[in-house]
Design a binder for these strands. Structure first.
Lengths: 133, 133
DNA sequence: GCAAATTAATGATTTATTCAAG
DNA sequence: CTTGAATAAATCATTAATTTGC
């Protein structure tokens, strides 16, 4: 329940929700109503990097900055960025939750991990000298 | 391709060239002199079918079951199955991502504005509205 | 046809993340 | 803030495909 209004209000009003020129939509007559934002690979890369570097729940100001930056790659609005972070957080959590569930439904993956680790440790015998790493 | 001789003492010296580990069976009859596991076509078929039918990240128990099942076709260990699913996931993702990139082929504009830390500063407005972390 | 040389696939390891429990 | 558990990403290393010269 975050207030998204200030994020979107500061933007230039151009193409607020119209689908005049979509990226790759086939303009074959039938105008698709649902023209939702589709991030380009560059935009995704940027967003993931920002997320990784610590921005998990961006403030309104950060959203404005990120949006401005992403616009170099293509059309994007503040609410897209806001929703992206929201969805990304949720999906990361889902992933973690799913792996917890699968952990409980059997004897824990740790067995497998242990098996692999034991292999590895038996391998490490030949641990080279002076492994500065 | 890689030198088998002691290639100088390279810093990292990834010298895990031999197959001293996992020498499962010398196999007097069949020339099983391979080091790493090589799935048979039947095993691959089974694995792909399982993957397609929804098993993406198998639990330890599932790995055991699948391994037992695949063993009807030839030698296989749990870690092989584990690695197979890991690699398959990763490489399916790669493929998917590559498709997306080639699909987009956006016209890589030059970046005029730089990083986010170029803080716009003028936008201080009332960003206190939401974004409580 | 056939191996040596080269390239493409892919199995196995290491490294960097993630969320959340302590 | 630190650590546990489990990847996914990146990388290494080996095997199969294939190319090439004979």
């Amino acid at each position: 329940m975050y207030a998204v209004v200030p994020v979107m209000s500061d933007e230039q009003g151009r193409s607020s929700s119209g689908c005049f020129y979509s990226d790759k939509q086939p303009a074959a007559g039938a105008p698709r109503r649902s023209c939702r934002w589709n991030p380009t690979p560059e935009q995704i890369k940027d967003l993931e990097e920002l997320y990784r570097s610590g921005i998990k729940t961006p403030t309104a100001q950060q959203i404005r900055q990120v949006t401005a930056r992403l616009r170099n790659y293509g059309r994007v609005e503040g609410k897209n960025v806001f929703y992206w972070f929201q969805n990304h957080r949720a999906r990361e959590r889902q992933k973690r939750r799913r792996e917890l569930i699968s952990m409980h439904q059997s004897d824990t993956k740790q067995q497998q991990q242990t098996l692999i680790n034991s292999k590895i440790t038996s391998l490490q015998k030949k641990e080279s000298a002076g492994g500065t790493n």
